[in-house]
Design a protein around this nucleic acid. Sequence first.
DNA 1: ATTTTGTTGAACAAAAATGTTAAACAATTT
DNA 2: AAATTGTTTAACATTTTTGTTCAACAAAAT
Lengths: 205, 205
Amino acid sequence: MKDNKKQKRILEVAEEEFLMKGFAGARTVEIAERAGVSHSMLHYYYKTKEQLFGHVMVEKLQRLKESVATVFMIEDMPVVEKVVELVVRHFEFLSENPDLPRFIINEMIVRPEYAEMMKREALPLLKDAVARLQRELDAAAKEGEVRTMEAATLLMDIVSVNLFSFIVAPILSSVKPDMDFQAYYHARCQENVQLILNRINPDIK
Amino acid sequence: MKDNKKQKRILEVAEEEFLMKGFAGARTVEIAERAGVSHSMLHYYYKTKEQLFGHVMVEKLQRLKESVATVFMIEDMPVVEKVVELVVRHFEFLSENPDLPRFIINEMIVRPEYAEMMKREALPLLKDAVARLQRELDAAAKEGEVRTMEAATLLMDIVSVNLFSFIVAPILSSVKPDMDFQAYYHARCQENVQLILNRINPDIK
DNA sequence: ATTTTGTTGAACAAAAATGTTAAACAATTT
DNA sequence: AAATTGTTTAACATTTTTGTTCAACAAAAT
């Protein structure tokens, strides 16, 4: 038929609702309502709330995977520049999916049944990425371009500073309601790049 | 009577349940059960789930305030050492309240009615802390002890790297089930201190 | 043109969760 | 000793939420 427009719409709204309110907080009737379809339609396409949630999860984990995959997509380039590129790309990914991390982390803790799924989906890729980065860092360290450090630690630093920039954004905006988000994000991304540069080589800049 | 032992127990369990599952996910019957009291007892002390949640919130915001207050409790001391001390104390606070931040951030987004309360409770103190730190940083910058930087940014960096160490801990432990948490936290705290030191003065160490 | 698929509405069933009540009794206070 | 407060049990009422069904109709596919 008409390309399952309504089914897609349900999924879209469900994503928003689940991300905002979590599994327990979201309401199927509200999802249907906001999606502009009848209550029965929702159950026509998705038997249960659980199933609908499953679809959202799969979709989201897909994006998380893509996020990790950006590490590989960076072609041959000096490791320092590569790290900067990594920070920026990760930051951009978060700009487009600002509340994905909060959602994932929460549902992993609140609903351990999904932790397994996430491990299967995202971990192998991540491990590979860490191993590659480690090799490059070690090589650069031999040349004295960067200090010796663990790739896993570096990645954690990158993710943590970037993530936090987004997690606190709603709090900051409630403090300063007239806050300029664009300017904030721009400044924050640069701050984060700086911080990570300092981290891999205290002598840079 | 016997010092409201049961009432306290209910609150304790409610805290755990709300922190783990959020307001929407927690169940009053389960709280009563786990607290070892009857269902009616719970409603005897706390009319509604909402009210019980309110008590938990107040308690938690109190701790958050105390966390912020540590900034003031640090006596006269060179600003660099003070910052190190700050990182360590904040890290220790998180060790004792590992899922408080996730809970607070979540409920702020999911239940905006509590955001107001949090602002009233924690923000004035925080603003004061930032202003004080800024003055000290500026003074130290004049002496060339640290680079010029915004106190708010520094605090954000501290909170973000510390927070993240805790947020990822459950994920890491699911990857390596035999992981040594004690060792992890110890290493992580030192890494974070290093990172922040680099941040305020790239020439240190 | 007919069959299948999508869609609604409205009512309804079932389940889950919250909140209430009353009787009985125990412990504590006054 | 009497009154108050804490506590349980167990039933029940209420509300909220999820999930079902069915009749009717629209749109698309065959």
